[in-house]
């Protein structure tokens, strides 16, 4: 018993009170992934170097209830920073034994919603005109967080569209600067096609070619960088409407499902999941048969026979 408890203390963190084991070197995000615990994120993809830019994976690390050896209380970096009691990005913060992590709390989800609203208003995210709608992780994140509006004034920035490449489209209107394409190109494709230039509000995606255009870059249709975009900034041409709205990734899945990255990437390559009727999105339900005259009709109308609170005038 004593031995078991000892094991737990040395490789266990607690996410919303749930014990999660980790291996040395894993981040909080890695450990959560392995345990099937969802921490919201946009710029993270298992297998690529963590970037920590979208800040959707913000979690709170509280002080631990049990006291440990002093060296455990500090993250093992060269600066030996004490992170207890701070908000950190889960994708870049190492898991340290005994961490008490708050993740799925109303306060954190409200902060995440505000971050998502800022991502929306800073770009031009006109979902009805975007062929990525339904396959877009940003949109799915907004659904997940219950975002109804952008809250802030719209920026309506003017951004450059690059349609020069024969098979890949680059629309910077929708770019959220997550650098997934940058990292995929560098780490998986071995090419360095993309980078972020500029700072703050002028930051933008640039293409590594003499003309700055995609057509003159090394990008090829089968590169991971051409498929990894979580929004509709990098699109494969001529395939945008092969799957109708209502049958797309996030019509069939929730963004919080673990292992969804594989589904998304598979979909990005044009191999779409075939939905069955049971998993179809709730917005396209099989309509109830119309009520016949008589009792059935009255019953169906009863949903509006409610205790209406009339306003006095």
């Amino acid at each position: 018993m004593g031995e078991e408890a000892n094991t737990i203390t040395h490789n266990t963190i607690y996410i919303d009170g749930q014990p999660v084991t980790f291996e040395a070197g894993q981040t909080i995000m890695d450990a959560a992934f392995s345990a099937g615990v969802y921490i919201p994120h946009l710029c993270h993809r298992p297998g690529l170097t963590p970037h920590g830019s979208c800040k959707l994976c913000v979690v709170d690390i509280g002080s631990r209830g049990v006291s440990f050896h002093n060296s455990d209380r500090r993250v093992q970096t060269k600066f030996s920073v004490d992170i207890d009691g701070r908000s950190v990005s889960a994708c870049t913060t190492p898991a340290v034994a005994g961490q008490q992590i708050s993740n799925n709390t109303p306060a954190l989800n409200e902060v995440r919603k505000t971050i998502t609203q800022m991502l929306f208003i800073e770009g031009n995210h006109i979902c009805p005109s975007c062929e990525k709608s339904g396959d877009c992780t940003l949109q799915a994140m907004a659904y997940h967080l219950g975002m109804l509006d952008g809250h802030f004034p719209q920026f309506f920035p003017r951004r450059e569209v690059d349609a020069s490449h024969p098979t890949v489209m680059l629309d910077r209107d929708r770019c959220i600067l997550c650098e997934l394409c940058v990292r995929a190109s560098r780490e998986v494709d071995g090419k360095n096609v993309f980078a972020i230039a500029g700072r703050g509000i002028t930051a933008h995606l640039i293409v590594n070619s003499s003309s700055g255009k995609l057509v003159d870059s090394d990008l090829e249709t089968n590169d991971m960088a051409a498929h990894i975009c979580p929004v509709g900034a990098i699109l494969i041409k001529e395939h945008g409407y092969e799957v109708p709205i209502g049958r797309r990734t996030f019509d069939l899945h929730q963004v919080g499902e673990i292992g969804l990255e594989k589904v998304i990437l598979a979909n990005g390559h044009g191999k779409y999941a075939t939905p069955d009727d049971e998993t179809r999105h709730a917005r396209f339900p099989v309509p109830n048969p119309l009520p016949q005259a008589g009792e059935g009709a009255n019953e169906s109308l009863r949903e509006f026979h409610v205790n209406v609170r009339h306003t006095d005038e």
Partner: peptide, 17 residues
């Protein structure tokens, strides 16, 4: 609103397209 409640759109109905 008719029932005097704060509107709370069910997440399954939430979509932007």
């Amino acid at each position: 609103l008719l029932e005097g409640r704060e509107p709370a759109l069910p997440k399954k109905l939430l979509h932007y397209d």
